[in-house]
Design a protein around this nucleic acid. Structure first.
Lengths: 332, 332
DNA sequence: CTGAAAGCGCTAACAA
DNA sequence: TTGTTAGCGCTTTCAG
């Protein structure tokens, strides 16, 4: 008796009394088959639970129907909207999403990139702009459409959907200053983009004559626990601080909890502002002022750029600045 | 002039003056090459940024070095630990993770599964046990190692790393009763596993003579906003309630915020207990009692089961119950 | 230690 | 509308 291996188009073809090509067409262009042929093939497919081998299909057609994403972290609210909308948008267009986590480490990012490039995806979406020369070279040589996101540069590797972290830092500092806060601080996770927001913040502070801004840094990604301990440290070392910009809403929530525990009233004695404006921000008590990034739009646009390019519709814009908005709520 | 297409092993072979097979070996079994040959090939690879086509490799060797995961949601704290540890553990062993989100819908789960099976991954990890007969059949015929997780059944499709939701519901109800709470309620997202916890909770309540337990249901996945509105509804319709079991820590946080806003003191007038014991639970104010699930262990074990099976080391246990633990903190 | 031949399962291109 | 042929890029297998 034969070993019942996993079936191939040829097996299905034999069972349905047609050629392998006809089976292939039943999946990829059913409208080109005679209805009777189609339904005969479909019946066999149904009975056998046959699923064609997409690996072989990709190799032959050099279309993977697969898009890769590189993220620093899957944890926390910051990239969640983007991942979701990428996943959805791609799913609707018949593409699969493959995710890799670089854990905020350049070496891991490079290794990951190489593993992903090897699978010849139709496109790669990266959170952040690529900094390692090695990684840039690999991406360019691979000739795979690349979308850098969640950051900004006038000279992306290929396409970009993002915004300027420096400008956010400047805007937040000016925003707090406008509302009368004169002793701001920053609590951040040690990631490159948060650092650039802090730099923008300091630059604006300099031009407003506010001097050196206290800066508390924890490991990335920012967690509630880090927000609490950051706030504790800040309060002990810089009791005069009247406002704090946190590099994520999770950190901000931790900072608020710690402040409330210490009897520091928000926003009366301390203003708190978060980053990313995740779902939770509007529903905290007090509601959290946060920098809104349209993560859904970033994911959707990245998916569209890649799919359009793959399917031969070159996008009109290769660099898209989605901007940001400070959503003012009760915490400031 | 020739079009500089993406390179193949043959191109590298020509440049290094060896055969394609030797280039292949330089990647897959470098120890079997003469050091001088190896370094010559590596030099060419370095100069050209060559990355071998893993699609072709997989097709020929029928080893994908790819594992697929199916999750109901990427949002929220519940599955994050599991995804992280899956991703890490697989990464360390040279496998890639491909993630699909079923959005708590059986139809999407089936479609996703088919798309994933088509890529012939070395294994599939699923959050939850497969309920659709269609899905089960596909998985079985595909002959791909499957690990069902985050749930329990004595008859998994293949392997299982999970725990019983019914028993959690029972334990939590008994736990609250032990501490003197006599009017418990449940706030949950409408997902199948949360429902089974609620059923276990009700069953225990019945045997304790507590009568019908108020149940507030919101859309899955549970969010902070849903926790707030659930708590509001609960407080208006059942003001006598003295304790509430929430189906995620996010819901619990929302419930706590709403209670605090309404001046309901926790745990004096209301006890709150969450589910999954995410990072944040210990750091909330008051610290949240939660049902701890070792999500990291689930992810790690699932990865090991799949990799071991793939590499010809059949696992000794196919069904692993990781259990759970109620971590008591200040909120109860 | 290295190479040549064959073929994984599918689909592009062409033919009937 | 359907079938035939060839080959995508790699690695298994076998030979040297």
């Amino acid at each position: 008796m034969k070993k019942p291996q996993v079936l191939t188009v040829h097996d299905i073809a034999k069972l349905a009394g047609v050629s392998a090509m006809t089976v292939s067409r039943a999946f990829n262009s059913p409208e080109r088959l005679a209805p009777s042929t189609l339904s005969r093939v479909q019946e066999v497919v149904r009975q056998t639970n046959f699923v064609p081998n997409a690996i072989a299909g990709s190799l032959r057609s050099s279309r993977a129907r697969l898009v890769a994403a590189v993220l620093p972290t899957l944890v926390g609210p910051v990239f969640q909207e983007t991942v979701r909308s990428l996943s959805r948008e791609l799913g609707e267009r018949g593409y699969q999403l493959m995710i890799g986590e670089s854990q905020y480490e350049t070496a891991k990012e490079d290794a990951l990139l190489e593993a992903l490039i090897g699978r010849r995806p139709d496109g790669i979406a990266i959170a952040g702009i690529m900094h390692s020369a090695e990684g840039r070279r690999q991406l360019i040589t691979a000739r795979i459409p690349v979308v850098e996101t969640w950051d900004f540069t006038p000279t992306p590797i290929d396409m970009l959907v993002g915004f300027s972290h420096e400008r956010i830092g400047e805007s937040v500092c000016a925003f707090l200053h406008d509302r009368g806060y004169r002793a701001p601080a920053v609590i951040m996770a040690s990631d490159r983009r948060a650092l650039r927001r802090a730099e923008g913040f300091q630059r604006q502070a300099d031009s407003l004559g506010l001097g050196k801004i206290p800066l508390i840094v924890s490991d990335a990604p920012g967690t509630l626990a880090a927000g609490r301990s950051g706030m504790a440290e800040l309060h002990e070392q810089h009791p005069q601080v009247d406002s704090v910009f946190c590099s994520s809403d999770m950190l901000a929530l931790g900072a608020m909890i710690e402040a409330q525990t210490r009897g520091i009233s928000i926003p009366d004695r301390l203003a708190v502002i978060g980053f990313a404006d995740s779902d939770m921000a509007a529903h905290l008590q007090p509601a959290l002022t946060s920098v809104r990034i349209d993560g859904t739009r970033i994911g959707r646009t990245a998916a569209q750029l890649i799919v359009d390019r793959t399917e031969g519709r070159p996008p009109s814009e290769k660099i898209i600045d989605v901007g940001f908005e400070i959503v003012e709520r009760a915490s400031t």
